[in-house]
Design a binder for these strands. Sequence first.
DNA 1: AACACTCAGCTAAACGATTAGCTAGGTTCA
DNA 2: TGAACCTAGCTAATCGTTTAGCTGAGTGTT
Lengths: 337, 337
Amino acid sequence: MATIKDVARSAGVSTATVSAVLNDSAYVSPPLRARVLAAIRDLNYSPSLAAQNLKRGRSQLIALVVADLANPFFSRVVWAAEAAVAAWGYSLVVFNSDEKPEAEQRILSRVRMLSCDGVLLVPVGDSTKHLQRDPDEKPLPTVLFGRTVEDDKSDTITIDNISAGRQATEYLLDLGHTRVGSITGPLHLTTGRGRLDGMLAAMKSRGLAPEPRDVRSGEFREDAAYSVARSLLEQQDRPTALYVASGLMALGAMRAIADLGLRCPVDISIASTDTIPGIGGLRPRLTRTEHPLVDMTNEAVRLLVDRIRRGGEVEQRNIVFQPSLVVGDSCAPVGLR
Amino acid sequence: MATIKDVARSAGVSTATVSAVLNDSAYVSPPLRARVLAAIRDLNYSPSLAAQNLKRGRSQLIALVVADLANPFFSRVVWAAEAAVAAWGYSLVVFNSDEKPEAEQRILSRVRMLSCDGVLLVPVGDSTKHLQRDPDEKPLPTVLFGRTVEDDKSDTITIDNISAGRQATEYLLDLGHTRVGSITGPLHLTTGRGRLDGMLAAMKSRGLAPEPRDVRSGEFREDAAYSVARSLLEQQDRPTALYVASGLMALGAMRAIADLGLRCPVDISIASTDTIPGIGGLRPRLTRTEHPLVDMTNEAVRLLVDRIRRGGEVEQRNIVFQPSLVVGDSCAPVGLR
DNA sequence: AACACTCAGCTAAACGATTAGCTAGGTTCA
DNA sequence: TGAACCTAGCTAATCGTTTAGCTGAGTGTT
């Protein structure tokens, strides 16, 4: 690989001049500039990011730490984030904490070692104490995505989970269902807890409450939702409608319904929150709340880049996106059959 | 951030000794070693990868360049690759070439700038001429994944696409279908071409050949497959079975079937190749060939790491994985209805 | 006692960029 | 004419590591 010295020698100038041309950091007369550019072309030179990183103290790298890479929802986040990050001139380093706080901690220390300029984090634990390892060293620019944690000073991008749960549940209630159950996400996560709270609020405002045995929580996974749904629906006395906390889980629930010989929506109505790719092919079409994932991701990257550039001088921002109901045909009026 | 100098000063030794302790690169007496380790702990020191990269000429980064990050198939590759790469002590930088050769080229030059140690590439074009920019500089360690290109010297991990097409088609033929159509991938890709060739071979060996109008090619996308399937199936005189080249496309085809008011498998049988997450929830269950994606990815990373470490001294390796048929209920004997 | 070895640990030169500070020549103006 | 000021480009220090090569003390041999 050619270095800046080779270019300087070949153009008959100093390395400072080459650097000035490369970065437009000082005026260079046209003839010299031309010679430098020619030398760069001849030698097929491109500056070493490693050296730049060392000198400048930044790396052009943004880390994305997701809680479960196997979840298609987060795959879409990876997709959207890669594009957004590239548009700002960064590259995306992807990590999977697999919902394990220890793994998250390991990853974050690696992120520091790599001197990533910032991190887009879907936090796993219920705190980010482990983020600042040293009180006096300046914190790694961070944007929390999708989930929030207690008393953190990072910017956040989230959805209104309560509204999501409420909207989906209200739709079911409007169809006349009174016995509504739910398969929730983990309740220690804001996404799990919030959606359930929204569901409960919707029912409460109509003087209803779910049977305790109709509300089961599980992980945000297809197989977990499948088995939870199975055991929930195997009760001889089961709910007529189900609010399922995520798209991936809805897939599991649908599979359970089919395997139990039930029909959706005739025997049981399903509504859920969030979507995953390919779900559009599913029949019946799922009634669900969706949120603008691409916009959310773009906004998250924008905030992060802003914080990387302007640092602490900008105050904390917490942006909440609103979910909207997408009506499919997975829900029917109660007592249809 | 504490530097190696701070550690050296605090422990009362030279930086060389600290480095020796960190890398086990020379014998350091127990007392000194202990002092160094204590200083490291006190100062919460971790070496700067930027500086190490510059000095060592490597970055602990492996690039993954996929052809379409929006395709759930590649999302699974990201998931598997992240885990494999982390197990070898590397971090994964993800790029999306979006099936565009120019983008791939841009990405690869960025990969060089980042001085990634190696790249796992799902190639987009039909050649990798753009890979070695300079004939004399040593090539970036590369493993081609899934697709191959002409006259390349990289290691490759692929599946036997011909066998995949053949197996799926033979299954349809065994059910008595004689009028079989296909929705293929792009025919300039080995994955698209090979699967079609396998299908044609299977038919030919029984003295059959598809009607030209029953074979349509499209991109590996859900929406593309949807519209191609629609126009194919809207013919009043249509095939009784369809071989679809990918899991994502099969989803599109199924959706087209449903939207046309047809039933699968009663009116039309579908078999496909490869799988995507969540497809297990689909009803009817898709009959398809699957390949061991996780094993393939692990093997690809293993080859890549081996090439990074042992360089040119190891000869080119081309590993072909075999697909296997997974029978669902998306295919029925011909003339069932 | 003189010599050759070992050995632990140090000094200082890289790696490839950026950049503060300098220099030498050219203008401007009293 | 010469002080003051610009200007274009150079010199050299610097970022935080690694590592070749050195040093000086200790050991063993004759």
